[in-house]
Design a protein around this nucleic acid. Structure first.
Length: 866
RNA sequence: GCGAAAGUGGCGGAAUUGGCAGACGCGCUGGUCUUAGGAGCCAGUCCUGGAAACGGGGUGGGGGUUCAAGUCCCCCCUUUCGCACCA
């Protein structure tokens, strides 16, 4: 960015006498009548109703739908929705057929907790909230196609959520299993792993407990590799992709079989040796010779089988204490590792050594096989444990150029090195050793190459009322029986009195809900009392937006094929893992079932930043919540939304301050005043000179900035244009002013009409009501039903951006010493000649030798002298 | 501990490929109009010396590369976010 390109800078302008404005009537932009007027017109003309049967150049613009957990739309919603709408409106003016839907993620704990707190049925409070929020949403003036609104808590919607569950069930992707799961004692329900990050409930912050319960899972782990692999095809923030990668947590290594010293029923004995085998996963098969003991997770099913009578008491006491600990305590890395010996031994697959088997809480049942080989010399956790319980430490990887003595080690050596004490592998580099050892184990049928993931299956059942009932019937004879599709939806009973959480689903206490006939055998059977995780609802809402009224299918295949995937998805980064990963999984599963023709739902994703207030996240408890309504009422919706865009980088977020909004209000007033005074009778014809340059400069930059969601700088560029126009229109400046300014050379501005028409179109996506109003002010013949949003987005003419004079910076020894007004394609020789003549440069050049000349055409000359 | 991003005036924030640091806005100062001004308009506003012209310094700290560094490299500090015994 160089000054000479700035349309409004005029640093060489001579001071002029103050000339009083003659035509400016200062008055405030009357948003109060104007904004509702245009909203009514848009409603009337169906301006925001997208004809989905004629996609044309389609553009599916999506924001994360709102969560009616309270009655109010908060500033975070505005910050997500309003700038996103500006982007989508711009797309529309670029000629895209834009579809911008809105709906309500109305099921779930927050909505239910809100209802419970007030003793009212969640259906009532939700409907109430939706009514209020919809009104507030309408104030934004966004292009929402309200004819396609969805509400995930309506039977018309959750019927199809249940249908999707059944599709997964039929494909073996929805299954029930008994497992230690996260239990939130406050919400009285189980949670998915993603919702219990760090051991606390994602909703209420309560530490979660482990409970062994039978629950429904979606087999997302089956898609781990594909979820990982197709990330590379997505235009998503790098950070979001990394988070998903980390969450999936692929790691390569080996599965290795260790023999027990006895035979246990149900456990493999492939060699018929009379001993059972168990597997462990390791990423370091090269350290296999350094194993000195084995560790099982306390929950490991073999523990009960192998524990010797002598150790039984200690083992049981230990397991008990582990179960009482919350996950927070258990996973804290601060805490010293604890464990206990089981009395049992395993046999090393290569050396035949006896290895004591311990249980310890640092081994997690949910990862790998729930058992590990312990190599204290080369794994810090094993090292700490071995030191504490005086277990042997055996060095098998030697660091380059030195040797390790276990007696003097104060931490494990985890880096690569050379294998030692490893029989035939001695001297092998550890990296190479990984595959060499795995190969040997494979030959001996005692191991294999393997990949494991951190990702766990998605636990989807919830012991709560306000959700979509799981469409499964439990029959003593037939087992798990899917509810026949023609019987969907399984309606959530409405006349429930006690929906507060009690540890099991409130539905379990309703015989009229629970008791059914088995659809297969006709005998009495029970419904599943649990409801689905809300993230199931939100994993497919973008499909339903396209066919919200269809009661024969979940979505219209033709329309879906034409409109999806979503072209631009905008929402909070807090959904980087959960919602976005779940939705990707559901879409891939539906793709495999040939129910959709795309396997990634969101081609391009961006996150808005977070708006803080006084440095903190806004929250009721901090008392720093900014109420958008107050500002909308005072300044109007356009000013409010533009200020949010102007505050800073959209993807960065920022700190709210009341003061700054006046800057935008002034801008809008000044712009409005300009049109008020000049719209009528503005000079026809083509703009020329500096005005033409400034206009095209603005078009270029606003366009570029919108492309990258840099709303703040786009608005700055428009402010510069306005400042320049006001100066030119109000005070015809002397001819001699600097190149940067707008000068007409006469009283008026030639081509002002075109300038104003273009400006109205530029500002329209940012301030839709204002844009519409300004555009209509320009031509009395324009009907109310004509819309600026049906006008083409202005295009800049590169020729208009070519200047006949540019400011060339002259440096001496890298320091700025002069500026020259020159022809842009002037050559080095001429510039040096000009520089030598410059009086300002004389003191720096006199008596010196020019040793080097650096010339950047049209920009800079640097003379190195000495 | 690991991973990612960021640190620029009183404040929010701008600055293609390294090429005029501080655009735009808030706030502040002075002026103007006014019964009044917390409205509008005009001028000024990184720090520092100077009446000015014009100098000197300056993008978290330290070093380096370069004619030239907010931007590239190395070390350090701080903040935010994410993950956190994942074998």
């Amino acid at each position: 960015m160089t000054n000479d390109q700035r349309p409004t800078t005029n640093d060489q302008r001579p001071t002029t006498n103050n000339q009083q404005p003659t035509t400016i009537h200062s008055m405030d932009y009357p948003f109060a009548p104007i904004e509702p007027k245009w909203r009514a017109v848009w409603d009337q003309t169906g301006a925001h109703h997208t004809d989905l049967t004629k996609p044309g150049r389609k553009f599916y613009g999506l924001v994360m739908f709102s969560y009616p957990s309270a009655k109010k739309l908060h500033i975070g919603h505005w910050y997500n929705f309003a700038p996103a709408d500006s982007f989508f409106r711009w797309k529309r003016m670029q000629g895209y057929n834009v579809f911008e839907p809105m709906g309500f993620d109305a099921f779930g704990l927050p909505a239910e907790n809100y209802a419970v707190a007030r003793g009212v049925h969640p259906g009532v409070t939700t409907a109430d909230s939706i009514t209020h929020i919809r009104e507030q949403l309408q104030q934004i003036g966004a292009m929402y196609d309200w004819t396609r609104e969805v509400n995930t808590s309506s039977p018309e919607y959750y019927r199809w959520t249940q249908w999707i569950f059944l599709q997964l069930f039929h494909r073996g992707l929805a299954y029930q299993k008994q497992a230690p799961v996260n239990w939130c004692p406050s919400c009285q329900t189980v949670l998915a792993n993603e919702q219990a990050e760090g051991g606390s409930c994602e909703r209420c912050g309560t530490p979660v407990l482990k409970r062994d319960l039978k629950q429904w899972f979606f087999k997302i782990t089956q898609y781990a590799d594909r979820l990982l692999e197709s990330l590379s095809r997505l235009d998503w923030p790098r950070k979001t992709k990394i988070m998903q990668e980390n969450w999936i947590g692929r790691s390569e290594g080996a599965m290795i079989s260790f023999a027990l010293e006895k035979l246990i029923e149900g456990w493999p004995d492939p060699s018929g040796s009379g001993f059972s085998y168990f597997e462990i996963f390791t990423t370091r098969p090269d350290t296999l010779y350094g194993v000195t003991y084995m560790v099982f997770a306390p929950e490991h099913p073999l523990v009960a089988e192998i524990t010797t009578p002598k150790q039984r008491g200690a083992v049981e006491t230990y397991i008990d204490s582990v179960h009482r600990a919350t996950d927070i305590e258990r996973i804290s890395t601060e805490r010293e590792k604890t464990g206990v010996f089981t009395g049992a031994y395993a046999t090393h697959p290569l050396t035949g050594d006896r290895l004591p088997i311990w249980i310890a809480d640092y081994v997690l049942m949910g990862y790998g096989t729930g058992a590990v080989m312990a190599v204290p010399a080369h794994d810090q956790r094993d090292f700490e444990f071995a030191r504490k319980y005086q277990l042997p430490i055996r060095v098998v990887i030697q660091p380059p150029g030195s040797s390790l003595d276990p007696a003097f080690m104060d931490q494990a050596y985890e880096e690569p090195g050379v294998m030692v004490n490893s029989a035939e592998f001695n001297g092998t580099a550890s990296e190479e050793g990984k595959s060499a050892v795995t190969r040997k184990l494979t030959e001996l049928n005692r191991g294999r190459q393997a990949v494991t993931y951190r990702l766990r299956d998605w636990l989807v059942s919830r012991q709560r009322y306000w959700g979509a009932p799981i469409p499964i019937i439990h029959c003593d004879v037939c087992g798990l029986v899917p509810v026949p599709e023609d019987q969907l939806p399984v309606r959530l009973p409405e006349n429930v009195k006690e929906f507060a959480p009690k540890g099991k689903s409130p539905l379990a206490n309703l015989p009229e809900f629970m008791d059914v006939e088995c659809p297969i055998c006709g005998l009495p059977a029970k419904r599943d009392p649990d409801t689905m995780d809300t993230f199931v609802d939100s994993s497919w809402y973008f499909l339903r937006y396209l066919s919200p009224d269809r009661d024969d299918v979940a979505w219209d295949p033709e329309v879906t094929k034409a409109w999806l995937p979503v072209d631009q998805y905008i929402g909070g980064a807090e959904h980087s893992v959960m919602h976005l990963l779940y939705a990707r999984f559901i879409i891939k599963a539906l793709y495999d079932a040939r129910l959709v023709s795309f396997d990634e739902p969101f081609t391009c994703l961006r996150h808005q930043g977070i708006i803080t207030h006084k440095g903190d996240k806004m929250s009721k408890s901090r008392g720093n919540v900014v109420n958008p309504d107050a500002f909308v009422e005072k300044y109007g919706s356009d000013v409010f939304r533009m200020y949010m865009m102007f505050m800073g980088d959209y993807e960065q977020g920022g700190d709210w301050s009341d003061g700054g909004i006046t800057g935008i209000a002034r801008f809008v007033n000044r712009l409005w005043t300009l049109y008020l005074n000049h719209a009528e009778g503005a000079e026809e014809g083509e703009p020329s000179g500096d005005v033409r340059y400034a206009l095209h400069y603005t078009i270029q930059h606003v366009t570029q900035d919108l492309e990258t969601l840099h709303f703040n700088t786009a608005i700055s560029r428009m402010m510069e244009l306005l400042n320049g126009l006001l100066e030119a229109a109000v005070q015809p400046p002397p001819l001699s002013r600097g190149v940067g300014g707008i000068s007409s050379g006469q009283g008026g501005i030639p081509g002002l009409k075109i300038v104003l028409d273009t400006f109205a179109r530029l500002v329209a996506p940012f301030a839709p009501h204002l844009g519409e109003e300004l555009w209509h002010m320009l031509d009395a013949k324009r009907k109310e039903t004509d819309s600026v949003f049906d006008q083409p987005w202005p295009e800049y003419d590169p020729a208009a951006l070519v200047r006949d004079k540019v400011t060339l910076v002259v440096q001496v020894n890298g320091k700025l010493r002069d500026k020259l007004e020159v022809n842009p394609d002037i050559d080095q020789e001429s510039v040096v000649a000009l520089a030598k003549m410059s009086e300002r440069l004389t003191p720096y050049l006199e008596g010196k030798q020019i040793r080097k000349v650096i010339f950047v055409p049209g920009k800079l000359l640097n003379l190195v002298v000495g």
